[in-house]
Write a protein that binds this DNA or RNA. Structure first.
Lengths: 249, 249
DNA sequence: GTGGATAATGCAGGTAATTGCAGGTTTATT
DNA sequence: AATAAACCTGCAATTACCTGCATTATCCAC
């Protein structure tokens, strides 16, 4: 069998069944697994499929159009994302919410990181999926169209049964008097339970949102362990929060 | 044997078998392999075939997979998606799996449709989110990286508590003897429960997968109510399934 | 017919591509 | 942490490829 012919066959199989296994192909075509591996390697390099341990997956199935849209204050959020990503260690269980800041955080995670992320945010989950060593637990329930995360009693109950190392939240407003506040009742229920179910809570926000208030109370400052902004930790805007016992990063 | 005559013979062979091997041709026509090579070279330059290491492939055969856009057999899948979309009525509760065929189905849904979709497939959910009037229930559990849907006991149990109007599945293989078969154990558990929890089951597949078999049994033909392919319902390839009591669309 | 121009073919050699195997390393899973 | 499977690297053997060049076939005008 000719090499190109063999590769065409592999491609056909992978497009037909979404995945192929090297050992199976090797037996089917009667060539060594090394040859199959080299074929998959080549096809992978030209983007025709995606190579994984033991076989390959359909490229069409794997690539999802990453919405590289105009995120507000993106560079600031990338700074925040990098700071937050440096806190995550191998083996951790992390609860995360949604929002564009969390998305940037997800993109900043190193590909070598082996951790478990628990989230109900569909965009965030899509980002976590791009990281080969991250385990993902999806929180199921009704999907809120506006926030693109799952909300409801079911999701809250599910979080109750979890004790995570970290809870990482993008927040909408924070000030010294009211603590963390938000504007979506359903989302607040989720955030509150995430905070309650984690050993440590880390809040991410761009400095613009500091000292602003929203209608619904999420939690007091005493529940927050760390606050991450794009600013230098020594910035005087952050001093009141440092004084309240929050670690500023 | 004349040169033109020889080349005509080679072309005939390549169109007949989709491939030719230099060494074989050399023996058949009793000329040196160098001559065959030169012939293939010329025919390749005029686009009559595609030269590869060791021989040549039919141009038609070789071109097809190259042109492919993001989704393999996209137009076929769009035909399927449109057929399936026409079955969905306002107010319905629909369980759906994952896969590229389901993705096309999701894109074909009219924006006016008011229905509730229940799924654990992240890419499918991302598509449903684009439809303003669709309610989405996310099935939570561990996310399988290869199939991009949630799998596990939790998701299965959650489906158990649902009674949906329709179950729409993209399937990997179907034949009259073994029914529907697949290649991922976890995904099969989900599919089986989805079928059990729905009044009607509709299977989507491109005709290429008909009469193919995969290792794991999903369900017998008796569990399927409708089968949707890109083919005309009267196509004789589908007759055995029609005879088994399945509605062909 | 016949000579010369042109094209086609086969062969020699050196180069490149392909493949399977041995070994040591990495990865996934229990 | 152990174990089996998958992976990678380098190597050797085989096979295909290419470049000239000599030989042979074909064609065309005379």
């Amino acid at each position: 069998m000719l090499k190109k012919e063999r590769q065409a066959y592999i491609l056909h199989q992978v497009n037909l069944h979404n995945k192929v296994v090297s050992a199976t192909l090797s037996a089917e075509i009667a060539v060594s697994e090394d040859t199959i591996r080299r074929d998959l390697q080549e096809l992978s390099e030209t983007g025709k499929l995606v190579k994984v341990h033991g076989g390959a997956l359909s490229a069409a199935f794997y690539d999802n159009p990453v919405i590289e849209s105009n995120v507000y204050a993106q560079t600031d959020k990338q700074i925040i994302g990098n700071k937050a990503a440096s806190l995550i260690k191998d083996g951790m269980f992390i609860l995360t919410g949604g929002g564009t800041t969390i998305l940037e955080f997800a993109r900043c995670l190193p590909s070598t990181l082996k951790a478990t992320f628990i989230s109900g945010s569909i965009p965030a989950i899509s980002e976590y999926m791009n990281h080969p060593n991250i385990e993902i637990i999806v929180l199921g329930d009704k999907l809120s169209k506006t926030s693109r995360i799952t909300v409801g009693a079911d999701a809250v109950n599910r979080i109750k049964n979890i004790k995570a190392d970290l809870c990482i939240l993008g927040i909408n407003a924070i000030d010294t008097e009211n603590g963390v506040t938000d504007n979506d009742w359903d989302v607040v229920q989720i955030k509150q339970q995430m905070i309650a179910s984690s050993h440590k809570t880390i809040c991410l926000t761009i400095s613009e949102k500091i000292n602003t208030v929203q209608p619904i109370h999420v939690c007091g400052l005493n529940k927050i362990d760390s606050l991450i902004t794009e600013l230098d930790p020594g910035n005087k805007l952050l001093k009141p929060f440092k004084d309240a016992g929050i670690t500023i990063l």
